[in-house]
Amino acid sequence: MTKRAQNWSCDCGAFRLTVETGGGTRAMCYCKDCQAFARALGKTAMLDAQGGSDLYQVAPQQVRIEAGAAHLRVLRLSEKGPFRWYAGCCDTPVANTWSSRALPFATMMSLRFEDPAALGPVAVQAFRRDAIGYVEREGGGMGRLYAEFGRRVLSSYLTGGWRKAPFFDGSGAPLSEPRTLDAEERSRAYDAEQTV
């Protein structure tokens, strides 16, 4: 895919990014955690009928915050889970990252790009077993996702790009203090009956 800078914005437009989209991987993830994240934020409309989240994974140095950094919030579904970033102004899911910039990846929500079709077709289906109902297999599986993830991580280390993680400051601290769901919130988030 040809490299192209695309704008990304939250639902209300107060938080905006620019993302260099070349070399990323578009995936549909059906995992229970992605579904729980959408439920926790009251954003189940972002899920497809089978509970899938349309995601685009890039190296973090390809992402630049343009406006609204003060709106960034971080949610963790469990004490050791990844960081799940969202725009606190309107609770729009933004990206998933590791809890440290030392493992460089940013998995963005595809549907908020100005031109999602330009990201290319979904190349990977992840965690089909967690889907709500049957999902026909199309494209690659977890092996392809891990291979492309590994390629980007290696490139980030070789170029020093991993230090340019936009969701962390120069010392490596997250731009927002992470909050972990309590037991009651977690139970509600994982309740599949709440999926619209």
Score class of each variant (00 low, 15 high):
residue 166 P to H: 02
residue 114 E to M: 07
residue 151 R to G: 10
residue 144 R to E: 09
residue 103 L to N: 12
residue 140 G to P: 00
residue 94 V to L: 11
residue 156 S to E: 14
residue 120 G to T: 09
residue 2 T to K: 13
residue 30 Y to Q: 07
residue 39 R to D: 08
residue 174 P to L: 03
residue 182 D to Q: 06
residue 20 E to V: 08
residue 17 L to S: 02
residue 171 S to E: 15
residue 10 C to Q: 00
residue 16 R to C: 09
residue 92 T to K: 00
residue 18 T to G: 06
residue 145 L to Q: 06
residue 90 C to G: 04
residue 6 Q to R: 04
residue 71 H to V: 06
residue 87 A to L: 03
residue 22 G to P: 02
residue 160 G to R: 00
residue 63 V to E: 04
residue 102 A to P: 06
residue 43 K to P: 00
residue 104 P to T: 03
residue 158 L to M: 14
residue 108 M to P: 03
residue 164 K to Q: 14
residue 38 A to N: 00
residue 136 E to T: 15
residue 148 E to S: 13
residue 95 A to Y: 09
residue 79 E to C: 13
residue 83 F to Q: 05
residue 8 W to S: 01
residue 165 A to P: 04
residue 90 C to R: 02
residue 8 W to K: 01
residue 73 R to K: 15
residue 169 D to K: 07
residue 134 Y to M: 10
residue 71 H to I: 05
residue 68 G to N: 02
residue 180 T to F: 09
residue 111 L to I: 14
residue 160 G to F: 04
residue 160 G to W: 07
residue 38 A to D: 02
residue 11 D to W: 14
residue 136 E to V: 14
residue 42 G to R: 07
residue 140 G to S: 05
residue 74 V to E: 01
residue 50 Q to E: 10
residue 132 I to G: 10
residue 31 C to S: 05
residue 42 G to I: 03
residue 19 V to F: 04
residue 9 S to D: 10
residue 14 A to I: 08
residue 187 S to P: 01
residue 66 E to R: 10
residue 23 G to D: 05
residue 12 C to P: 06
residue 15 F to W: 04
residue 170 G to N: 13
residue 99 S to C: 10
residue 94 V to F: 04
residue 35 Q to S: 06
residue 54 D to K: 01
residue 170 G to M: 11
residue 100 S to R: 05
residue 23 G to P: 01
residue 161 G to M: 01
residue 9 S to P: 10
residue 57 Q to N: 15
residue 184 E to L: 08
residue 12 C to W: 03
residue 192 A to R: 14
residue 83 F to E: 07
residue 176 S to C: 12
residue 85 W to H: 07
residue 23 G to E: 08
residue 145 L to F: 13
residue 40 A to V: 00
residue 109 M to R: 13
residue 85 W to V: 06
residue 107 T to C: 13
residue 48 D to F: 10
residue 116 P to Q: 08
residue 48 D to E: 10
residue 37 F to A: 13
residue 158 L to G: 09
residue 167 F to R: 00
residue 170 G to V: 05
residue 52 G to S: 07
residue 191 D to S: 05
residue 83 F to L: 03
residue 84 R to A: 05
residue 73 R to L: 09
residue 95 A to I: 10
residue 12 C to S: 09
residue 96 N to Q: 10
residue 107 T to L: 15
residue 79 E to V: 11
residue 13 G to F: 07
residue 82 P to K: 06
residue 103 L to T: 11
residue 55 L to W: 07
residue 8 W to R: 03
residue 177 E to V: 13
residue 155 S to Q: 14
residue 161 G to I: 04
residue 71 H to F: 14
residue 61 Q to T: 09
residue 72 L to S: 04
residue 23 G to R: 03
residue 91 D to R: 14
residue 26 R to D: 04
residue 174 P to D: 07
residue 146 Y to M: 15
residue 49 A to Q: 15
residue 22 G to W: 01
residue 146 Y to E: 14
residue 185 E to K: 11
residue 118 A to V: 03
residue 56 Y to R: 01
residue 38 A to G: 02
residue 139 G to T: 12
residue 156 S to Q: 08
residue 54 D to G: 05
residue 33 D to N: 11
residue 151 R to D: 12
residue 88 G to L: 14
residue 48 D to V: 06
residue 14 A to C: 13
residue 137 R to M: 12
residue 46 M to S: 12
residue 189 A to K: 03
residue 30 Y to I: 09
residue 60 P to M: 02
residue 94 V to H: 04
residue 68 G to V: 06
residue 125 Q to M: 01
